[in-house]
Amino acid sequence: MSQLLIRDLHVSVETEQGTKQILRGVDLAIGAGETHAIMGPNGSGKSTLAYAIAGHPKYKVDSGSILLDGVEVLSMTVDERARAGLFLAMQYPVEIPGVSVTNFLRTAKTAIDGEAPAIRGWIKDVRTSMANLKMDPAFAERNVNEGFSGGEKKRNEILQLELLKPRFAVLDETDSGLDVDALKIVSEGVNRAKENTDLGVLLITHYNRILKYIQPDFVHVFVAGRIVEQGGPELAVRLENEGYDRFLTADASVG
């Protein structure tokens, strides 16, 4: 069974005020088909964890390791990580002017699989996934994320998740800025991917809301760059009611 194993991960970023440590020893094991929710207050380092897994050059890994089925991910380039089976659904997907969604999806699929997808099956897959996510077919000819609303960008992320079929997906606040209809559509997309490909999910969120639609197996509370408490789905409910106050000390926030 596939496993994504994060061990004692320390990550910092360079800021104008100097080096700032953000992750202070994260340990996490995610198995295939499992859904782990990471919940925490703003500034606790949740997104940093997501970007560190994906390999964003802004984040410097000081120590620790990320193993995908025993293979060190940290020594891979960003694209190698994706080809190894990791996927990051971004909180703020960037616009790529002049590159159509169709062209982008086909290029990514070809890169991930190492060969171009068979044209007929691929077009059908794209159409089906877009229909499932209630995306207008006209989106296929638009430039990636250009002029997309917040909800459309998130659907486009989940569209990629469904088509690229990674082994593990990190969803970085995919629920932020979504109305309830869009939240349901996006969640159904994630659940389909889980059913179809035994996807392991690391779901980063501030709120319990999305967990009503994507059932987590484990909930981790993330404060000041590390996991401070773990539990089952019931922990999310408790956080929703009580907030994060009991975890926060005066110096806990890393901003």
Binding site: P57, T77, D79, V94, A108, A111, L164
Partner: peptide, 14 residues
Amino acid sequence: DEQLFYLQSRGISE
């Protein structure tokens, strides 16, 4: 750089 990161994070080489 953010455009590059986005495309690379989908498996596309630099």
